[in-house]
């Protein structure tokens, strides 16, 4: 059983506030995604979670196997840093064996885990190759194995999909789904919205160190775009002037001569909308539009940027002083 609670976390580097009063909670067995553009504070947050840096203010509390802790026990989690870090002049086997030993694994367990994961990630034939001879994608896979080698209860992955081709992205996605099903908790940051959308149970959208939205995909959609969009096809060509007269329609855009997208006026419900629409023309199709996470993300960041003045130095995530 694992629970991580962050309460009003703040972190500054020199004059830049990288994380500003962020709170969230990660439950056992969840996949929790941190989203945001570059410099949003995702890596800073992750580095505080793994204890590489300390928050300037706020607290991070860990509940692990019934114990209240201030930091994650080193052997309970696997960490994939944003800047990949393994020994380039050592082989895949040497790198992973070293990490396995440092995690306190027995030699036989390391070997068994190595075979298992290298087989799964198609690296079996490259086990005795130096890391600098592997492609970026394969290096990324080795790095991922280093996190899961000891079967941790928690995975903290900073940009796990970067450097991977679409096939390998799908591969990693299925591995993460499988790990989740086996009870592993995953905290990850990513830019691949389509993948996160399929993967994450909960998400935290950040921009310039501040919280923009938080919750499940449905909750985030609701927070970021409370207007409900519908797509309607008519049996015949529609007159836009007639639509403007409908009180249930707040806004609309024409997609085709017989197809429109519209939003509902506050206070009206779907049946009232349908009633008004059928009075104008005969309906062929009616559906609710679910905006993609990608759309929501872009909209949210754009809106937040308009509210917040531009931060002159906003690339402080790598600076750990």
């Amino acid at each position: 059983m694992l629970r991580i609670s962050a309460d009003h976390i703040e972190k500054s580097y020199s004059t830049v506030k990288a994380v500003n009063g962020i709170s969230f909670e990660v439950q056992s067995g969840q996949i929790f995604a941190l989203l945001g553009p570059n410099g949003a504070g995702k890596s800073s947050l992750i580095r505080m979670l793994v204890g590489l840096t300390r928050p300037d203010a706020g607290t991070i509390r860990i509940e692990y196997k019934g114990e209240e802790l201030n930091a994650l026990p080193q052997r309970c989690y696997g960490y994939l840093p944003e800047d990949r870090g393994l020994y380039q002049d050592k082989t895949v086997r040497q790198n992973l064996t070293y990490i396995g030993k440092l995690r306190g694994m027995a030699a036989a367990d390391i070997e068994a885990a190595l075979i298992l994961w290298c087989t799964r990630l198609d690296l079996l034939e490259k086990m005795d190759d130096n890391l600098n001879k592997l492609s970026k994608g394969n290096q990324q896979k080795v790095q991922l194995i280093s996190c899961v080698l000891h079967t941790p209860d928690l995975l903290i992955l900073d940009e796990p999909f970067s450097g991977l081709d679409p096939v390998n992205q799908e591969h990693v996605l299925s591995i993460l789904t499988e790990l989740k099903q086996s009870g592993t908790t995953v905290i990850l940051s990513a830019h691949q919205m389509a993948l996160v959308e399929r993967l994450a149970d909960q998400m935290l959208l950040l921009n310039k160190g501040e919280l923009v939205a938080q919750g499940s995909l449905a909750q985030v959609s609701q927070q970021l775009d409370p207007k409900q969009w519908f797509e309607i096809s008519f049996e015949q060509q529609i007159n836009s002037q007639a639509l403007e007269q409908l009180s249930a329609v707040a806004d609309f855009k024409t997609c085709d001569s017989d197809k429109i997208q519209l939003t509902l006026t506050t206070g009206y419900n779907v049946s009232q909308l349908l009633q008004q629409l059928t009075s104008v023309a005969e309906l062929a199709d009616f559906s609710r539009i679910q905006p993609s996470l990608h759309q929501l993300y872009l909209t949210a960041v754009q809106q937040h940027n308009q509210q917040k003045p531009a931060n002159p130095i906003n690339n402080a995530e790598g600076d750990a002083a």
Partner: peptide
Amino acid sequence: TEKQQRVTEQLLTLI
């Protein structure tokens, strides 16, 4: 080299 290749990030979460 360890600092430049960011091996430090990985190892300091282990030891």
